[in-house]
Simulated assay, not measured.
Amino acid sequence: MSLVQTITDDMKTAMKARDKKTLSVIRMLKAALMNEKVKVNHELNDEEAQAVIAREYKQRKESLDEFKKGNREDLAADTQEELKVVEKYMPKQLSQAEIEKIVAETISTVGATNTADFGKVMGAVMPKVKGKADGKLVNQAVKSQLS
C-alpha cells in the first residue's frame, strides 16, 4: 500500500474515532501532499511523498525548538503531539552509530583527508541517508571525523 493511501486510511480511522488532534495533523499532511501533487503535476510516488513528510517533520521540529527557546510550553506541547503523529509516516531513523559508520565508509571511499573535503563527503553521504537521518547529525559526524 502506498504512503498516500496509508495516510488516507488513517484519516478515515481518526474521523471514526473522533480523534481531533490526529485528524488535524493528518489533514495538514494530506494538504501538503496535495499541494506537491499539483506542483509536480502527477501522482506522487512513495519517494516523493516521503520527501514531503520529511519536510513537514522538519518544520515541526524547528518550531518545537523555537517554542522551547521562547518559553511557550503550551505551543511546544501541541507541536510535540503533532510530531508524534508525523513520525508514524517517517522511515526508521538511523542511530548516531549507524550515521558515523556510513560517514567513515564514505570518507574512505572518497579519499577525504581533511576539512577541505567536507563538501565532497557531505555530497556523497546525504543521498545514502536521505530521509533516514537529520542533516545536522550527519554534518556533525562528518566534521568530527574529518578534524
Results as ranks from 00 to 15, higher is better:
60 R>H: 01
34 M>A: 07
20 K>L: 13
22 T>H: 04
130 K>E: 14
63 S>V: 00
77 A>F: 08
56 E>A: 10
86 V>F: 11
22 T>P: 12
81 E>V: 05
138 V>I: 13
79 T>C: 00
122 M>W: 06
91 P>A: 05
92 K>P: 10
39 K>P: 03
107 I>S: 01
126 M>W: 06
109 T>Y: 11
135 G>L: 11
30 K>D: 13
144 S>M: 11
12 K>Y: 08
50 Q>S: 11
143 K>L: 13
126 M>D: 05
137 L>V: 04
100 E>F: 14
40 V>S: 11
48 E>T: 15
66 E>M: 01
126 M>N: 04
73 E>P: 03
15 M>D: 11
78 D>Y: 04
125 V>P: 00
7 I>Q: 08
107 I>L: 04
117 D>L: 10
70 G>I: 04
89 Y>S: 01
9 D>L: 13
2 S>F: 03
93 Q>I: 03
144 S>Y: 09
84 K>H: 10
36 E>T: 11
28 M>E: 12
50 Q>I: 01
91 P>G: 02
128 K>L: 11
113 T>H: 13
131 G>E: 01
135 G>K: 10
126 M>G: 08
16 K>T: 06
31 A>C: 02
2 S>G: 08
110 V>R: 03
54 A>S: 15
15 M>W: 03
25 V>A: 08
60 R>T: 00
97 A>K: 05
129 V>Q: 02
73 E>V: 06
96 Q>K: 15
131 G>Y: 04
106 T>M: 03
131 G>R: 10
55 R>T: 08
24 S>V: 05
60 R>D: 00
